[in-house]
Amino acid sequence: MEVRTIKVFTTVDNINLHTQVVDMSMTYGQQFGPTYLDGADVTKIKPHNSHEGKTFYVLPNDDTLRVEAFEYYHTTDPSFLGRYMSALNHTKKWKYPQVNGLTSIKWADNNCYLATALLTLQQIELKFNPPALQDAYYRARAGEAANFCALILAYCNKTVGELGDVRETMSYLFQHANLDSCKRVLNVVCKTCGQQQTTLKGVEAVMYMGTLSYEQFKKGVQIPCTCGKQATKYLVQQESPFVMMSAPPAQYELKHGTFTCASEYTGNYQCGHYKHITSKETLYCIDGALLTKSSEYKGPITDVFYKENSYTTTIK
Rank of each mutant, 00 (worst) to 15 (best):
D63P: 14
T226H: 14
K92R: 10
T35G: 00
L173Q: 00
G267N: 15
E2G: 11
P241E: 08
N61S: 14
T312R: 12
H276C: 14
T5V: 15
L291H: 07
K201I: 08
E2P: 12
R66P: 09
H18V: 08
A177N: 00
R141A: 09
T282L: 10
A205M: 03
G82T: 10
T159L: 13
M170W: 02
E68L: 14
V99Y: 06
V42Q: 08
Y113D: 04
A154P: 03
P131V: 01
Y306C: 07
D38G: 11
F259K: 00
Y28T: 01
I301S: 05
C190P: 02
C193M: 01
D41Q: 10
L133W: 00
M170N: 02
S50M: 12
T43S: 15
V12E: 04
Y137E: 00
V188Y: 08
A136W: 05
T232I: 14
K93L: 12
G202W: 00
Y57R: 03
Y284T: 06
C261Q: 04
F259V: 04
G202Y: 02
T5N: 11
T282V: 11
T103S: 06
P47L: 05
Y269V: 06
G210C: 03
Q123R: 00
L153M: 10
F32H: 08
Y274W: 13
V221I: 08
T312S: 14
A142T: 15
F56M: 12
E144Q: 13
Y96L: 03
I152C: 06
W94K: 01
T19N: 14
T282M: 09
S263H: 15
V243P: 06
H74I: 00
T314P: 08
L81P: 10
W94S: 02
D77Y: 00
G299T: 04
Y208N: 09
L290D: 13
Y252D: 03
A250H: 12
E253V: 14
A205Y: 02
T278G: 09
I45P: 01
T19V: 12
C227Y: 04
D135I: 07
T11N: 01
G267I: 12
V67A: 15
A205Q: 03
A40R: 12
R66W: 07
I124K: 03
K183G: 08
S79Y: 05
Q195Y: 10
T55L: 07
K201H: 11
A140S: 08
V67M: 15
V221K: 07
A40H: 13
C193E: 08
T116M: 05
N187H: 04
T226K: 15
V3N: 06
E162Y: 04
A87L: 06
C182M: 07
P224N: 14
T27V: 12
P300A: 14
T192Y: 07
T198A: 11
L173D: 03
N309C: 14
Q196K: 09
K46A: 08
C149L: 12
F128G: 01
A108Q: 13
Y214P: 06
K307Y: 10
G272A: 07
S171W: 14
G288D: 06
S50A: 10
W107S: 09
Y214D: 04
Q31A: 15
A150E: 00
T76G: 10
D41V: 08
T116A: 10
D63R: 15
T232F: 06
G257N: 10
L200E: 11
A150F: 01
T55Y: 04
T232K: 08
H51N: 04
Q175G: 13
A250M: 10
I286K: 05
A117R: 02
I315F: 13
Y72P: 04
G228V: 08
K298M: 14
V206R: 02
K316Y: 13
D303T: 12
T302W: 05
E239T: 12
E144T: 06
F80P: 00
Y311M: 09
K307F: 06
A87T: 03
F70K: 00
N14Q: 08
E71L: 12
T278R: 07
E125S: 04
A136E: 09
Q230C: 06
Q30V: 11
I315R: 13
D109T: 02
T198D: 11
F217I: 12
K46G: 14
H276K: 06
V166S: 03
C112W: 03
Y36H: 01
T260M: 14
F242R: 05
E239F: 08
S246I: 04
D135Y: 06
Q123M: 03
S294T: 12
P47G: 03
F217H: 08
V58N: 03
I277F: 04
E296I: 15
R4A: 12
A150C: 00
Y155G: 01
L173R: 04
K44H: 10
A262T: 02
E71P: 01
L173S: 00
Q122P: 04
N49M: 05
F80K: 01
L65T: 15
E308F: 12
S294P: 08
L291W: 14
I152V: 12
E204Y: 05
Q196H: 05
K7H: 13
T75R: 03
F56L: 07
A140I: 09
H90W: 06
Y72M: 13
K54Y: 14
N187Y: 07
T116H: 04
A40E: 06
G53P: 00
T116W: 03
K307M: 10
L81W: 04
N309P: 13
Y252H: 13
T260N: 10
T199W: 13
K307G: 11
E2R: 10
T292Y: 11
N16R: 10
V67T: 15
K233H: 13
D13T: 04
Y306D: 04
A69R: 01
L291D: 06
A117S: 10
F128Y: 07
K201Y: 12
K280L: 14
A231V: 05
T5F: 10
C261Y: 05
C225E: 02
M170K: 00
K229I: 11
Y297C: 07
C285K: 06
A140K: 02
D303L: 04
A115I: 00
A262K: 05
Y138S: 10
K275V: 07
V160D: 00
G272S: 05
M24Y: 06
Y36C: 03
G288Y: 04
K307N: 14
H176R: 10
L119P: 00
N157W: 00
V243M: 07
D303K: 05
Y36N: 07
G267P: 10
K7N: 09
V8H: 01
C149V: 15
I152Q: 03
T192V: 10
T10R: 11
G39M: 06
L290N: 11
A145Y: 00
K95F: 14
K7W: 11
D23H: 09
S294E: 12
Y73P: 00
G267K: 11
T282G: 09
L133T: 02
R184N: 08
I152M: 13
K255P: 08
T91Y: 00
G220V: 03
P78A: 14
D62F: 03
F242S: 01
P300L: 15
T278N: 07
C227M: 01
G33D: 01
L59P: 14
A154G: 01
G220I: 02
S310R: 13
V166H: 10
L17R: 10
L290G: 11
P224V: 12
P241L: 05
N309D: 13
V236Y: 13
P97V: 07
K307H: 11
Y36S: 02
V236P: 03
C190I: 02
T258N: 13
F305S: 07
Q222Y: 04
T116I: 05
A146N: 01
V188H: 13
P130S: 08
T169A: 15
N268K: 12
Y137D: 02
V203H: 15
N147Q: 14
N49G: 05
T27C: 14
C261H: 05
Y265H: 09
K93N: 13
N157P: 09
M245I: 01
G101W: 01
D109Y: 00
K255R: 10
S50R: 07
A117P: 01
T292F: 11
T302H: 03
N110C: 03
H51Q: 12
K106L: 00
K293P: 12
